[in-house]
Write a protein that binds this DNA or RNA. Structure first.
Lengths: 352, 352
DNA sequence: TCTCAGCATTCGAACGTTCCAAAGACATTA
DNA sequence: TAATGTCTTTGGAACGTTCGAATGCTGAGA
C-alpha cells in the first residue's frame, strides 16, 4: 500500500533540523542544543537559531527523537470495557491527559478487548518500548497486569490501591473512608443521629467496603449505633430502592450512599413514601456525578479530586521512570463533600 | 536527565531485526520481508525466520518504523473538557480504540485545555507527522479545527455532522430524526395518538433540532397534530420537570425526550402526580445511558450504535489517508429503540 | 554455450535526531 | 612564547527500520 504525501507547511515535506541549521549557518547539533540546552549557546547564536526555527516553522520529529533517546514520552492507559462505566472514568481520563500534556507527555489509549484484560495485547503494545510507562485504573482484585508489568520492568502507577494481597508498585487512590467519615460529621452537625449507610454487598468491592468503614468509624466515634443501619444492594436504583426500605422503617433520618446511583434509588423510595429528600430525610451520594447537580432536590455528594489524582498519577509515574529503584510511593487523596439541597437539619422530633 | 535501562525480555536491551537475522542466518532485509510481505520468501526460509522471531521474542520498534515509513499508525482524538460529559463519550472512546486496534492503529489522546479547543496544541501535536489522522467529536457549530485541519492537509473524520455552513470532510453521525421517528412508530402501534416531544430549545443544538424533526415528520405522516405538544427545556431534570407539565396537562399519553436526562425529569413529574411511567404515560429517552436500565420502571430509550460509529470512523479515516483526494464520504447510522418498561399500550380511554 | 527472465535474497543508503569525542576560539597564566 | 583552561561549536556515528537497486541462482529458450 503506497503511502506518501505529508505536506506540513507548504511543500517538500517537513522541515528538518539540518535545513534549519543550514539557514542559521550553524551545524545541526547546534540547533539541537538550541532546543534542548539553550544555555550552552552564545546568546547571539541562540537568537539566530531561534529565528530560523520560527521562520521555517520547524518542529522536531518525535519518531526520530524516540528512536535516538529510547523514550517515547508516551503513557499508556488501559481503558476498560465500558462495563463499570462509572461517570468518574472519563473525567479522570481528561484530567490525566491534561496533566500528561503539561509534562510533555501524551496518553496512548489501549482498549482491553471486552471480556477482561488480555495480556497478549500488552505484550504487543510494549513490544518495543512503545510507551514509557503505564497508568492502570480499576485494579480491584489481584490484577494480572500489575505482576506482568513488574516482571517486565515497565514503570506503572495505579489509580486505586489493590485491596487484597501484597501491595505492589506506586498508586494513587481516593480515601473513601475519609469521605464517608466527613459525611457523618456533616450530618451529625445538623442534628442527625440515626444515620444509615447504603452500600454494596460486603467483600465485593474494596472501595465499597472502604466507604462503609469510614461511616462505621465515625458513628462509633460519636457513640452512635450502626446496628440495623447498614443496607446492601447491587448498583441498581431498583435494588437500592428495596434495600433502603428497612433503613427508613428503622427510623433513619439520613442515608449515606456508596454511589450516586444508590442515592437515586433512595430518592425513589422517599418519593414513594411522600417524603422529600433534604426536608424529611437527608441523603448523601458518592462520586458527585453530573446527575447529582441535576436531580431535584440537588444531591449532596462526595466529589473525588480527579484532577489531582490525574496530576499525581503522572507525577509518580515520571518519578518512577526517572529512578526505577526508588521505594514505592502511595498517595491517599481526600474526597470533598459538596453540600447541596439533599442534606439539611434533622426533622425536629427525630433528634434523640 | 539521564535515561536508560529498558530491559525487554531479559537483558541487553530490546531485540533488533539484525539480531534475529543473524540467528536465522539471513539478512535483516529478509526478516523485514518475512513480516511485511511473507509471500516474497521461500516457505522454508519463512519458517526459519519465524521461528527465530518467536524464540527471541522480537517486536519491531515503532519509532524506527515511523521514522522510515513516515506513518505513525496513530490516530489523534481530541478529548473534550468534561463539560457536556454525555454518557456517550467514554463508550464511544472505547469503541473507537478497539476499532483502531483491529486495524493496527492506536488512539492518542489530546486534551484541549479547558475553555474551548485551542489550536496551538494541534499545531504542536501535528508538528511533525505525529499522528496520521484525526477523529473529532462534538463538532457542533463552525468548529475551527475542521478548517484548520483541512488547510494543513491532515486527514480527519468527524463524529457528528456540522449543522451549519458548508459540510467539509468526512463524517459519521447518528440519524436522530430516524430514531425519534421510530419511537413514534412504536408508540402509535401501541395505540398512542397524543405523543409529545420534550427537547432542548430550538436552534441551540443541531442534534436536538434533528431529533425534534423526526418526531414531527412521523406525527404528520400519521395525521397527528403536534400543536402544543412540544416542550423545551435545558438539560436538567428540574427544568425538564417543569417543561413537561403543560404537555401532560394537554393530555399527552406519551412523551419522547431528547435525552435520558430529560426523560428523568419527566419521571419525576409523573411521580409527583401519582402517575406511573409506562402504565399511565409512556416515556422514551435518548442515548440509552446506563441509567436507563437502572431506573424504575426501566426506561425505553434510543441507543446510538457507538461500536459501529467507532468502526466507521476508523474505516473512513483510513480510506481518507490512503487516498487524500477521493470524494468525501458521509455516513448516517440508525439508532435502535431499546424497548423497556416505560412504554406500553395507551390507557384505554385516552386513545383518540 | 549463451542469453534472458523470474525469483529469492542481499547490500547500501536513508529517515531525523542526539550522543560522544574532538576541534576551534579566546582569554589567562607561567 | 607557549601552555593551560573555559566556553562554544562541529563532525561522525548510531538508534532500528524499510526503500530501491543490485546480486546470485535456477531453468527455459535460442
Amino acid at each position: 500500500m503506497p503511502r506518501s504525501s505529508n505536506p506540513s507547511a507548504a511543500k517538500g515535506g517537513p522541515v528538518t533540523l539540518t535545513q534549519v541549521a543550514r539557514r542559521a549557518g550553524v551545524s545541526a547539533q547546534t540547533v539541537s542544543n538550541a532546543i534542548n540546552s539553550p544555555d550552552m549557546l552564545r546568546p547571539e547564536t541562540l537568537e539566530r537559531v531561534r529565528r530560523a526555527i520560527d521562520e521555517m516553522g520547524y518542529r522536531p520529529s518525535r519518531a526520530a527523537q524516540t528512536l535516538r533517546t529510547r523514550s517515547s514520552r508516551l503513557i499508556g492507559y488501559g481503558i476498560q470495557p465500558a462495563l463499570s462505566s462509572s461517570p468518574v472514568l472519563d473525567r479522570f481520563l481528561h484530567a490525566l491527559s491534561q496533566a500528561a500534556d503539561e509534562a510533555g507527555y501524551r496518553i496512548l489509549l489501549f482498549a482491553s478487548p471486552s471480556g477482561g484484560p488480555a495480556l497478549d495485547g500488552y505484550e504487543e503494545l510494549l513490544g518495543q518500548h512503545e510507551v514509557d510507562g503505564f497508568v492502570l485504573s480499576g485494579t480491584e482484585r489481584g490484577d494480572p497486569r500489575q505482576a506482568w508489568l513488574t516482571r517486565r520492568g515497565v514503570p506503572f502507577v495505579g489509580f486505586g490501591r489493590m485491596w487484597s494481597g501484597r501491595q505492589i508498585g506506586d498508586w494513587v487512590d481516593v480515601d473513601g473512608a475519609s469521605g464517608t467519615d466527613a459525611a457523618v460529621e456533616h450530618l451529625v452537625a445538623q442534628g442527625h443521629r440515626k444515620i444509615a449507610f447504603l452500600g454494596w454487598e460486603r467483600g465485593v468491592s474494596g472501595a465499597g467496603d472502604d466507604r462503609a468503614e469510614g461511616w462505621q468509624r465515625a458513628m462509633r466515634r460519636h457513640g452512635l449505633s450502626t446496628r440495623g443501619r447498614r443496607g446492601q444492594s447491587v448498583n441498581d436504583t431498583d435494588a437500592a430502592r428495596m434495600a433502603v426500605k428497612p433503613l427508613l422503617d428503622g427510623g433513619a433520618t439520613a442515608v449515606i450512599a456508596a454511589s450516586d446511583m444508590l442515592a437515586l434509588g433512595c430518592y425513589q423510595m422517599l418519593r414513594e413514601r411522600g417524603a422529600l429528600p433534604g426536608r424529611d430525610v437527608s441523603v448523601v451520594g458518592f462520586d458527585d456525578s453530573p446527575a447529582a447537580e441535576l436531580l431535584s432536590p440537588t444531591l449532596t455528594s462526595l466529589a473525588q479530586p480527579l484532577e489531582e489524582v490525574g496530576r499525581e498519577c503522572v507525577r509518580l509515574l515520571l518519578a518512577r521512570i526517572a529512578s526505577p529503584d526508588a521505594p514505592p510511593e502511595r498517595l491517599l487523596l481526600e474526597p470533598s463533600l459538596v453540600v447541596r439541597d439533599s442534606t439539611a437539619a434533622a426533622p425536629h422530633g427525630a433528634a434523640r
